[in-house]
Design a binder for these strands. Structure first.
Length: 201
DNA sequence: ATTATGATACGCT
DNA sequence: GCGTATCATAATA
């Protein structure tokens, strides 16, 4: 399991490339349909802005393929580290299309349908991701990433990241990527969804 | 279908 | 104390 290939691309390019990969934890999981890129110490919205190092964010300074999990209020959010240790950048996994363990995830969530995994806190709860997964390496712990794209998006859209206000150009930078028309992307309205193709080729 | 609002629990200063 | 890389529900149309 070697994730050096991640470092061959920029983090925004990786955020796009990871759409359609499968993410699984034990008997639950699905296809990645929405991501955000956090591009390191110059990114005012990043936890490592200005080179800040704390106990909570040290996983960001680990090599590509490491999982960074942190807590936001009552929820956990998960990222994949994308570059070498001296470049703390990562991709936040914001939504997946469930393919495995639907019943288990629905029970953990107390929700079903498109509400199952259409947001970063939701998918963490559905797959029972928490701080025990922080700093673990993909495919060596509980969290597994497929070695290639399972499905290919027919179109990829981009826009500003969610929940990072008042940070100037970093607030509006188009560093959020999603599979166009996929119903599991956060904030999708019924009219934007394509329930037949779900946005795949 | 869209918008507003309150609950939530840390980590950091 | 304060500020969050959120979510579910209720209210209005």
């Amino acid at each position: 399991m070697d994730f050096e290939w991640l470092t061959q691309q920029s983090t925004p390019d990786l955020a796009k490339a990871l759409l359609g990969y499968r993410l699984t934890v034990d008997e639950t999981g699905g296809l990645i349909v929405e991501t955000e890129a956090y591009v390191g110490v110059t990114d005012r919205t990043a936890h490592v802005f200005g080179g800040k190092k704390t106990a909570a964010n040290q996983a960001l300074y680990a090599p590509a393929g490491t999982v960074y999990v942190y807590r936001l209020r009552a929820y956990f959010l998960m990222n994949i580290i994308t570059q070498v240790a001296s470049e703390p950048q990562g991709v936040l996994i914001r939504a997946i299309e469930p393919t495995k363990g639907l019943a288990t995830m629905a029970a953990r969530r107390g929700q079903q349908g498109y509400n199952l995994t259409s947001g970063p806190g939701k998918l963490a709860q559905a797959m029972a991701i928490d701080l025990r997964d922080n700093s673990t390496m993909l495919n060596q712990g509980r969290i597994h990433l497929s070695s290639h794209r399972i499905k290919t998006p027919a179109a990829i859209e981009s826009g500003p990241r969610i929940g990072v206000p008042n940070k100037g150009e970093w607030t509006t930078a188009p560093l959020r990527f999603w599979v166009a028309h996929n119903p599991y992307v956060s904030g999708m309205t019924k009219q934007q969804m394509n329930e037949q193709t779900k946005g795949w080729q």
